[in-house]
């Protein structure tokens, strides 16, 4: 098991290198010129050239990449072009905000969707199961920018139940932040609920048909023991894998929700960095999201191995 984890962690290195190269190359082909971008349309061409020279933009791309990468791995993540502040604290603060939003959504959504899904699976083909299946499916197909806009219009603008902003005013106690996060978290929850619940349902239905569940029932075990001892553990394996990949996706996928609610999270920064040719910030954001994505998948695999002794011992 330890070897498996070590190997997976090692594999992250080439993946991250590849991702960083891709981002660099993509930023290069984005239209526009960085110096012109920063100085605006009325600056002289020589000033633009001078700035580009100062920023090192006139060097060939691979030289710039190697320089940037060298600094990055030694902890010097550079300075954001648009905010002219150090990237590292900026990204970390944004990451904190995003984790809070995603974490808030996940803490509610994971237990709820598993509960709903397992319940539907146990009551397969009942009216409740049908209702859960259909409603979770329809929730999944509503994009978050649609549900987000509708929620803002209904709950914030019309009913005034919840604030439009996602951040409380400066100086509010920390606990207030959750109140402000309710509205942005709901579109994320709707999206995930359907997906995770359906996985949990399918897993449960499949395991209920397994011969070992029959063994457990015919052994004369109480129903709750059959479900908690024999069904859930095996039924949740595919769900855990899905949750793992969804966590990473969620953090990257915050882009839309954060932009919509103007929330200073990593998705929001990533969009702005891409729009403004802010390469140091963009690289840092993308790599942080990539690491999170891989880590959450790894954690999911570890949980799966914990649930399945065969994987745990075979690794």
């Amino acid at each position: 098991m330890a070897r498996l984890i070590g190997r997976r962690l090692l594999l992250m290195v080439p993946t991250l290198i590849l991702v960083s190269i891709l981002v660099f190359a993509l930023a290069e082909v984005l239209p526009g010129n960085l110096g012109r971008f920063i100085l605006g349309p009325y600056a002289t061409q020589s000033a633009v050239d001078q700035l580009n020279h100062n920023l090192g933009m006139d060097k060939p791309i691979y030289t710039r990449y190697v320089e940037w990468a060298g600094h990055f791995v030694t902890g010097h993540w550079g300075t954001s072009y648009q905010y002219t502040t150090s990237v590292f604290p900026l990204v970390m603060r944004a990451l904190g905000n995003s984790l809070l939003l995603a974490g808030f959504a996940l803490v509610i959504i994971v237990p709820t969707s598993i509960l709903v899904g397992v319940y539907a699976g146990l009551r397969r083909d009942s009216i409740l199961d049908r209702a859960i299946t259909i409603s979770s499916l329809s929730m999944t197909v509503i994009p978050e920018f649609v549900s987000g806009v509708i929620l803002i219009v209904v709950f914030a603008v019309t009913l005034h139940w919840l604030p439009v902003q996602a951040m409380p005013p400066q100086g509010s106690p920390f606990i207030d932040r959750f109140y402000y996060l309710i509205l942005p978290a709901i579109p994320l929850m709707l999206l995930e609920l359907g997906y995770i619940a359906r996985m949990a349902r399918v897993g449960t239905v499949q395991v209920l048909n397994m011969p070992y569940v029959r063994t457990a029932v015919l052994k004369g075990l109480p129903r709750r023991r059959v479900i908690f001892g024999h069904v859930l553990r095996n039924a949740l394996v595919p769900t855990v894998t899905v949750i793992g990949s969804q966590i990473g996706w969620l953090i990257g996928g915050l882009v839309v929700v954060e932009t919509l609610f103007n929330y200073p999270g990593i998705g929001n920064y990533m969009v702005n960095a891409a729009l403004n040719h802010d390469l140091p910030l963009l690289e840092a954001c993308v790599l942080v999201v990539a690491v999170l994505y891989m880590l959450s998948n790894l954690i999911a695999d570890i949980v799966v191995a914990f649930l399945n002794p065969r994987i745990r011992m075979g690794g």
């Binding site: 011969p211 070992y212 063994t215 015919l218 004369g220 024999h230 553990r233 095996n234 002794p309 065969r310």
Partner: peptide, 21 residues
């Protein structure tokens, strides 16, 4: 009654045993 009065042995023992227990 199941387990105390009647019990069963199955065709495929690998499938009849709970895999993660």
């Amino acid at each position: 009654w199941r387990g105390e009065a009647v019990a069963m042995v199955y065709q495929d023992p690998a499938a009849a045993l709970s895999p993660a227990m």
